[in-house]
Design a protein around this nucleic acid. Sequence first.
DNA 1: GAGCTTTCGCTACGACTCGTAGCGTAATGC
DNA 2: GCATTACGCTACGAGTCGTAGCGAAAGCTC
Lengths: 206, 206
Amino acid sequence: MQSRTTAPRSGRPRSAAADTAILAATREALVELGWSKLTLGDVATRAGVAKTTLYRRWAGKNELVVDAVAVLFDELELPDCGTLAADVEGVVLQFAAILARPEARSGLMAVVAESIRDEALRERIHCSIVERQKRLVLEGRARAQRRGELPPETHPGQASRTVDLIFDMVAGAVIHRTLVSAQPVDEEWVQRFTAVLLGGLAAAEG
Amino acid sequence: MQSRTTAPRSGRPRSAAADTAILAATREALVELGWSKLTLGDVATRAGVAKTTLYRRWAGKNELVVDAVAVLFDELELPDCGTLAADVEGVVLQFAAILARPEARSGLMAVVAESIRDEALRERIHCSIVERQKRLVLEGRARAQRRGELPPETHPGQASRTVDLIFDMVAGAVIHRTLVSAQPVDEEWVQRFTAVLLGGLAAAEG
DNA sequence: GAGCTTTCGCTACGACTCGTAGCGTAATGC
DNA sequence: GCATTACGCTACGAGTCGTAGCGAAAGCTC
């Protein structure tokens, strides 16, 4: 969360229940009010805590919403469906399911927009959300290499850039489809997308 | 802009100079302050108009910023570089150049985030920004078909979904690379991306 | 020019949110 | 018991919002 490293040794400890209540109240307020109309005073009232308690734990609205939304990505896992294509389709559907939830839709884009002018916030998002997604790409590639569906590493530098490219293409396409085009990520779209992506990678590598 | 259809016939006409001054002031404020700290009062002062004039023309901050950012996309054009791959690379580089400008970075993501809970705003963004980009995809496909690089239409419905898919992949990847990964869209990245995209399309269609 | 219509700049206003300070109280470790 | 920290509560100045009201300015029609 905010400062898990520094462990105070004496005095009254911070209520862990308050943390979860605040984050849940934040998601609830995101659903009902959206980002712009969400106020910290309202979140405090919903959570049953004082407004000052909120400010003692989070620097502001941005940091609070990042933490509230980040837990939604805990459920992201890489399913083992037997083939690379099926694995990719499974992850994309999971990612799309998270983005379909209103608290994620309202919060994610807003904090990313804020992070453009706030380097610390960008780092926070990167650690608690982005890196967790990127790990799935790395896992999927390693698994496909073990299956023989992908060739092993050639140059470590080039492999890293390829992972970055894949990650931007997958996450970018799903986000754009969901939040900009405002159209559903259904089975058909996922299959067509996966076919283009994997077909392109095979054509580019081979 | 706001209500171009209704044309008043008598009385003092609205100052067109004020419009451009306000939009320019909005972009200037976006660069200096970013989305969250941008206030309409400040924009009015920068533009040299009264705050009430702003509210007479735009419903609020969202609509104003959409119009201010939309003009940045006027310069988007489809270059004729001879091959489909070169055309795609050219458009992607143009798109990335726009997203590299701070006024676009600060404003675009924020209004898209707001549009999630505001259908009218989403429609406004779609007409003045998204549709303009999508037109380039249609043009590029038609040109590639004339060159023989792409097969002519099979089913009109399927062709439309393919265009949607391509559009989400191109725009999504560039936006994600620029605003989430915060890494530059340079020549190398564009070439690798284009190779994967076109290779995948060829593999999926053929 | 006279008269009508609409816009413009300006001021002021209530309502709201922000983030903080101060205080007394509650909960822990030593 | 004592020091230390967290908590709830209240109050506050500062800032923004969006609107109302006014007189003046700028166009069109006759």
